[in-house]
């Protein structure tokens, strides 16, 4: 199971294993995604997708294996180092956006940069640029009043503002209707390619998974390569 790429992978998962209460959730998981490439992970509920995402984010410490992000093994890092590394090199888009409704879209996006240590002026300027690029109306509208699609695009902009090497998307279109889903998916894949990020999308949606360069299915605690268009 190898998403082998021609260039040095930004994300390289090797021999990942995680077990809890005598139950093996992940076993010998390998995954490599290079800059500008995308990978989709699909699987039924309870197959371990969330656990895999937790391991990729460093929120769950695996029993064995390594998770190399931008050259650093986050599975072995101490908490402070891990948080710094994650802040610098990783971005995440969640199913429900996880945006603060009272803030404007610019503020929501800039907030991630401010928390990442950017200067205020630079953070706001970059946020406006990204929102412009993703066609989100950001002037004078609280985020709470944006449509579902606009909110997810704002979440994509927020995930990109710290120029991450790896972008993780957790069911990014799960809460959207079909038309909005297509536009958000389009934006997600296009913008990460443009920004030269390695993208990992965890999804139930086969339509979304088919847009990725490679698609894996999490089956029996391991990743199995799946061809585009094939439904499990």
């Amino acid at each position: 199971m190898d998403g082998a790429a021609t260039v040095e992978p930004m994300l390289a998962v090797t021999g990942l294993r995680y077990e809890v209460a005598d139950r093996v959730l992940l076993d010998g998981v390998d995954l490599k995604v290079s800059a500008g490439q995308s990978a989709a992970v699909v699987g039924p509920s309870g197959s371990g997708k969330s656990t895999l995402l937790g391991c990729l984010l460093g929120l769950i410490r695996p029993s064995a294996g390594s998770v190399q992000v931008a050259g650093g093994d986050i599975a072995k890092m101490r908490r402070r180092a891990l948080e710094r590394h994650r802040s610098r090199h990783m971005g995440v888009v969640f199913q429900f956006g996880e945006l603060l409704p009272e803030l404007t879209p610019v503020e929501n996006v800039a907030l991630a940069a401010l928390l990442g240590g950017s200067k205020a002026q630079r953070a706001y300027q970059r946020a406006e640029e990204l929102l412009g690029e993703l066609s989100v109306p950001y002037r004078g509208v609280p985020t709470g009043r944006l449509s579902g699609g606009e909110r997810q695009r704002t979440a994509v902009a927020r995930a990109l503002i710290n120029d991450p090497a790896v972008l993780l998307a957790d069911e990014p279109t799960g809460a959207l209707d079909a038309a909005t889903r297509d536009s958000v998916t389009e934006v997600l894949f296009a913008v990460t390619r443009r920004h030269d990020c390695a993208l990992v999308v965890v999804t139930h949606d086969a339509e979304v998974a088919d847009r990725a360069d490679r698609c894996w299915e999490l089956k029996n605690a391991t990743l199995v390569r799946r061809d585009p268009g094939v439904r499990s």
Binding site: L103, E107, K119, A120, Q121, A123
Partner: peptide, 19 residues
Amino acid sequence: TRRTGGAGALIAGRHASAH
């Protein structure tokens, strides 16, 4: 916070303003 960059002030300010 556009000048100061205070993340806490940004969140709390908008929260107080909205609620």
